[in-house]
Amino acid sequence: MTDRYDVITIGGSAGSLAVITKILDALPPHINTPVVIVLHRLRNVRSEMSRLLSTKRTISEPEDKEPVKEHCIYLAPQNYHLLVEAERTFMLDYSELVNYSRPSIDMTFSSIADVYGEKALGILLSGANKDGAAGLCQIVAAGGMGIVQDPQTADFEVMPRSALDMCKGVKCLSVADMIRYIMGEIL
């Protein structure tokens, strides 16, 4: 059995936490496909985000050069950009903010587009700025799949709306349909 995707990457900002929790809770505990999550977080506030996100799943913040492993859910650590290198290992980058954000969703999405091509599934959720839109378009341009949360169902619509405006070929789904889509493709 081969999965359609080798990685699922999810980005979100304001209003996305509950949606991410919902998606993770819906995933079967032993899915192969690694999940890489990028959330905008507050700078220098010791974050309980990884615990908050979901109680059922173990979520880890990768360290530099850690391989992207199956069955694992990763969260970009606060204050670093999270990239994936050609060897499918993580790289952490403490450079300037991108779209006023670090971690920046664009940075992660764009590196995943380069490395995974058509084997990448990118999902962009609610958020109040446009970080992630360009990256999602890169995933689509590289042959992968890009999905946004239907702006009408998002607490903040700027983020998914920007992706829809920026490129064609991005799918627009409600959260329930998104979950249905993922389940259909990874099992």
């Binding site: 990239l83 994936v84 290198e85 790289m91 980058d93 450079s95 940075m107 764009s110 590196s111 490395v115």
Partner: peptide, 9 residues
């Protein structure tokens, strides 16, 4: 240097 980042820079 790690390519993903230096290429971007």
């Amino acid at each position: 240097y790690a390519h993903a980042s230096i290429r971007r820079r």
